[in-house]
Write a protein that binds this DNA or RNA. Structure first.
Length: 682
DNA sequence: ATGATAACAGTTTTT
DNA sequence: CTGTTATCAT
């Protein structure tokens, strides 16, 4: 009990103790959200005595689930059975494994990722852009709209067409027993919605439910939660409306804004004490977010004392900006700051290029977070497809990906013929290949390829037999059979690709060692739901998009691209309030020192564009006038000053350098950065 | 079947 | 300026 309560403030304690009925915890940035939610779980189990099996805690990412599990387990007495704490999607996966038979499907389904989905869609439809079709289908599923209803609703012919593609796509998934990411949740909802007994039993089974990052939930997730809570309404959600930055991919801020309307009798707890940042940083963050209209309203209060003022840089262009940021980072590193405590954030990934060049020139090592994820790399997806075919030779989709890797002389035409003929025969492509005579196959593919196909089929069946035995040596037999690493030789980035394959083999061996009873199929479904977790500590600074920085914190933080058109980013479908929340998320990542940077012009999409400073700089109370007010030095743009050596000049910019103000002064054509104390005002 | 060139579009991203 | 995809010779 003491272990749980000792470290909590009053607001956190009341959030932990409020266990009955709907609870909304509005957790400001850096307010100890994870501590609160894990303490609440520990309180439920150890103090209240709720059996662990009756709790359910859901997150959005595996990383959050992992962190929470670790922290909760350290609080919970160790003889307790571990509570179910996982991502929404993993919960869906587990639920479907035991219940999908109720809708006449087998639980040997395979989870496909976004890439697989796009490939299937491309095959069905060739004229409409696949990305559009994919996102529309996702939208339908997340709004619980079935293909026939989508067709009825559609007014434009293109949308009628999309509805038709949606229908065909669903048929394809069903006939190949595939499940996409959205299905994990919407099929779960459907089962609960259509089976009253199942719904009641499931709700009674999970009597205490907690949801992390509630501001990121969508309509489907809300409906799912309503089903799960239907018998008890013991739902505790934690989130921050001011950090809702995923509206563009379907998250509904309204879920957190109107939580009390969806779940009556809600208790609201606000966590406003911030343990992360100094007051000057929080003052800037509070001032900025105050400009949003649709929000609950919160004011972050620092628990740390003191703190430097927020610095604002302005440079001529992106090259100068990168140089200046790199110089500042160099200084920090030389003064002994740990590289992992420094980060640079930007609104769009395209801004990383100039920054990377600047960092390289200054010899500052960096780590780009985000980018292409491990499991999305082509060579890894090939391996996964091989394994999928081994578990299920009828998986035409995976088979087509790997049948010509390494090259077996099959092109698009040959594959199309093979697929068509196998469909006519009512067989999967693999069955068709193994049951047809050489003579038949020779009419479809090159003579030389027939032998290669026979060998391929033999190896697959051989490995399938081995996959049913102990899996520890499986990967060695696999590499022996297909020599994946050899086929990568000579390709661009050969060494990196081979290293990735080895990494995957290592991951496989680890998984088998840790879960000796797991099957190959279980391994594959698990990794499809896994994001990159290889972005760990190191001796380099971090650079990433603002989105990628959510939930992270750094002592020294730089935000570049603070210009109108970049932050806020303006385009169709852009939402100024969400842009402002992005600015807020960025600012609240800083623990000690925050620097905002803007440029006068930027090279982007092959053009140089003149830019003005982001309105957010003013809204945050960081215009030059306010800088002047905070300290007692009254310099602003346009002021005339005199320097002992350079003579008279005009101030063109004011920025912060440590404790002092730095002035950009134009001395009759030559511009210099001078500390304010070295000039006198005229 | 495969490699080379032209045309094109171009926020943010997890599962 | 990039990276990706469609089309065209070989």
């Amino acid at each position: 009990m003491d272990k749980i309560f000792d470290a909590l403030n009053d607001a956190q304690k009341s959030a932990v103790e409020q266990i009955d009925g709907p609870v909304l915890i509005l957790a400001g940035a850096g307010s100890g959200k994870t501590k609160t939610i894990t303490s609440r779980l520990a309180y439920l189990l150890d103090v209240v005595g709720v059996p662990a099996s009756q709790t359910l805690t859901l997150t959005f990412t595996n990383k959050a689930a992992k962190e929470m599990r670790e922290r909760a387990m350290s609080l919970i007495s160790n003889n307790t059975y571990p509570p179910l704490l996982c991502t929404f999607h993993k919960f869906g996966l587990l639920f479907l494994k035991s219940n999908i038979h109720l809708m006449g499907r087998s639980n040997t389904f395979v989870v496909i990722d976004t890439d697989d989905k796009k490939k299937i869609l491309k095959k069905i439809n060739s004229d409409l852009p696949t990305a559009l079709v994919a996102s529309e289908i996702s939208r339908y599923k997340n709004s619980l709209i079935e293909p026939d209803e989508a067709y009825r609703q559609a007014e434009l012919t293109n949308y009628k067409h999309i509805a038709k593609i949606y229908e065909e796509y669903q048929a394809y998934l069903a006939s190949n027993n595939l499940v996409d990411f959205d299905d994990l949740l919407c099929l779960t909802f459907k089962l609960l919605n259509e089976n009253d007994d199942l719904c009641r039993n499931t709700s009674e089974r999970y009597r205490y439910i907690m949801i992390d990052e509630y501001q990121d939930t969508n309509e489907l997730q809300l409906q799912l939660l309503q089903k799960l809570c239907s018998t008890h309404n013991n739902l505790c959600v934690v989130g921050d409306d001011d950090q809702s930055i995923y509206g563009w991919r379907g998250a509904h801020v309204r879920n957190i804004l109107e939580f009390d309307q969806d779940f009556t009798g809600t208790t609201v707890v606000k966590l406003e004490h911030n343990y992360r940042s100094t007051q000057p940083i929080l003052t800037v963050a509070n001032a900025l977010i105050e400009h949003n209209r649709t929000r609950h309203g919160k004011t972050l209060i620092a628990t740390k004392a003191g703190g430097d003022a927020v610095a604002v840089f302005n440079t001529h262009d992106e090259t100068e900006e990168a140089k200046k940021v790199a110089t500042e980072i160099r200084k920090l590193l030389d003064s002994g700051v740990r590289a992992s405590e420094i980060a640079v954030l930007y609104r769009i990934n395209a801004l990383s290029r100039s920054l990377e060049e600047g960092l390289n020139r200054a010899g500052v090592g960096y780590r780009l977070v985000g980018g292409l994820r491990f499991y999305d790399r082509a060579e890894i997806k090939d391996l996964i497809s091989y394994l999928r075919v081994i578990i299920n030779v009828h998986d035409n989709f995976s088979l087509k990906r790997i049948i010509n890797k390494p090259k077996r002389g099959l092109g698009k035409a040959a594959l199309d013929k093979l697929e068509l003929n196998s469909m006519d025969a009512g067989l999967s492509m693999f069955e068709y290949i193994t049951t047809s005579t050489d003579a038949t196959l020779e009419t479809l593919v090159r003579k030389k390829s027939v032998g290669e196909l026979r060998l391929f089929a033999r190896e697959i069946l051989d490995l399938q037999a081995r996959s049913n035995e102990a899996l520890y040596n499986f990967i060695d037999f696999f590499e022996d059979a297909f020599r994946i690493k050899e086929t990568l030789k000579g390709l661009p980035d050969e060494a990196e690709k081979i290293a990735n394959v080895d990494e995957f083999y290592g991951l496989f061996r680890d998984y088998i060692t840790q879960n000796p009873d797991m099957s190959l199929a279980e391994f594959l479904n698990d990794i499809t739901l896994q994001s990159d977790q290889d972005q760990v500590e190191g001796e380099s600074i971090y650079i990433m998009s603002i989105h990628a920085s959510k939930g992270l914190e750094f002592e020294h933080l730089f935000v570049i691209g603070m210009e109108e058109g970049f932050l806020p980013l303006i385009g169709d479908g852009s939402d100024l309030e969400e842009e402002r929340r992005l600015g807020y998320v960025a600012i609240t990542r800083a623990k000690i020192h925050l620097t905002l940077s803007s440029v006068n012009s930027r090279f982007y999409k092959g053009r140089r564009t003149e830019l003005s400073k982001s309105r957010f700089i003013n809204e945050a109370g960081l215009c030059e006038g306010s800088l002047r007010l905070e300290k007692n030095t009254s310099y602003k743009k346009g002021d005339l000053v005199r320097h002992k050596i350079f003579g008279p000049g005009r101030v063109e910019g004011v920025s912060k350098s440590g404790r002092e103000f730095k002035l950009l002064i134009n001395f009759g054509g030559s511009k210099r950065d001078i500390l304010a104390s070295f000039v006198e005002k005229l």
